[in-house]
Design a protein around this nucleic acid. Structure first.
Length: 330
DNA sequence: AATGACGGCAACCGCGTCTCC
DNA sequence: CGGAGACGCGGTTGCCGTCAT
């Protein structure tokens, strides 16, 4: 656990046990002599111990009773985002990335709501992931993260690609091929091993003959995007991802969740962009957010421990290619 | 080796909502 | 019903490690 000197440490005086002020507002607390900044091991220990004995809640009084010179808010945040035993540390996995993209497309910046569907992840972590990873790429593409272009890119290119990589990793693990021959991509994705990937397993492959409606303009860009040709689709090595040599996506990807065998199901027609909030089928049709499926699978999910899969989804070639597309359609 | 730029992440802040008296 | 305090959420800040020059 990281130990840092607390900012502003050294001040003291607040929180004597003789205080008879039973309730303090956040504002009042802010005026008192409270510690701020990074938490020390000792503070963490106090907080963990107190919650273990008394439970959580009533954070302001908890902070005082535990002998912490912190606001209740600070204690709550520290507990929820860091100290809780079920908090998962480590890189955001491919499946988690996919879920985040999917759920964000549905709910927007409802971080806590999104976090509810990623066991062990906090809203803060997801928010940070979004801001540091996803928004970074939007910036590289010189488009707004909320723009239709960027959303379409996520939906029609990056999310399929994520699924592809999850599947590729699964195929890789199933075939028990030596990872030494797989190159960096497989090494990064090998953590998907041994998952009965509920979402990827349910994924329908939505990327054949995608008509990418960049910017809502009339010009469509048709990309025959398949695992085997992904390195040559639309521009050479535009995706730069090694994939398993599967010849037919309809075999590669299993039955769509809605049992719609139509390979054109995923045409990004306007009527598919909108979708019912109550629908359990994602607007993209990638998987059954069988959020419960995800959770059920997760305990055996060795992927969850890591694997450096966090940022391999995007690369320079992607950015270059997409920028060309954007420029062509502006 | 020094240093400045940048990215990631923990923590803070403000505000809206909820709960209780 | 209204007010005060607690809670939770989303946005923002600032520290620190890493990388580039």
């Amino acid at each position: 656990m990281e130990v840092k000197a607390a900012a502003g440490a050294g001040r003291s005086g607040y929180c004597s046990s003789s205080s008879n002020s039973s309730i303090q507002s956040d504002q009042e607390s802010a005026d008192l002599d409270l510690r701020r900044g990074p938490w020390t091991v000792e503070e963490d220990f106090k907080l963990i111990n107190y919650i273990a004995n008394h439970g959580e809640g009533r954070w302001n009084s908890l902070a005082r009773c535990a002998g912490l010179k912190r606001t209740g808010k600070s204690c709550r945040l520290r507990w929820l985002n860091y100290l809780r035993p079920d908090v998962r540390r480590g890189n955001i996995t491919l499946e988690e990335q996919l879920l985040i993209l999917e759920l964000h497309s549905r709910w927007g910046n409802r971080w806590s709501k999104i976090a509810q569907h990623l066991p062990g992840r906090t809203d803060n972590e997801i928010k940070n992931y979004w801001r540091t990873r996803v928004q970074k790429h939007a910036k590289q593409l010189k488009c707004d993260v909320n723009s239709k272009q960027f959303k379409d890119t996520m939906r029609y290119l990056w999310m399929p690609r994520l699924i592809e990589r999850i599947q590729a990793a699964n195929a890789n693990s199933n075939s028990a091929t030596a990872t030494a021959t797989n190159g960096g991509f497989m090494n990064s994705a090998v953590a998907v091993n041994n998952i009965d990937v509920g979402l990827a397993g349910n994924a329908m492959m939505p990327v054949n003959n995608i008509e990418k409606d960049f910017g809502g303009c009339s010009q469509n860009i048709t990309t025959n995007y398949t695992p085997e040709n992904s390195s040559t689709a639309a521009s050479s090595d535009s995706f730069g991802t090694q994939v398993s040599p599967v010849s037919d996506l309809t075999e590669y990807y299993t039955i769509p969740v809605n049992n719609n065998p139509n390979p054109d199901y995923f045409q990004p027609a306007a009527n598919q962009v909108g979708f019912s909030e109550s629908s359990l089928i994602s607007p993209t049709g990638y998987f059954n957010p069988g959020i419960t499926d995800f959770q059920a699978v997760e305990p055996n999910n060795q992927l969850m421990d890591g694997g450096d899969a966090s940022d391999n989804l995007w690369n320079v070639d992607d950015i270059w290619f997409l920028q060309q597309q954007f420029n062509n359609n502006m």
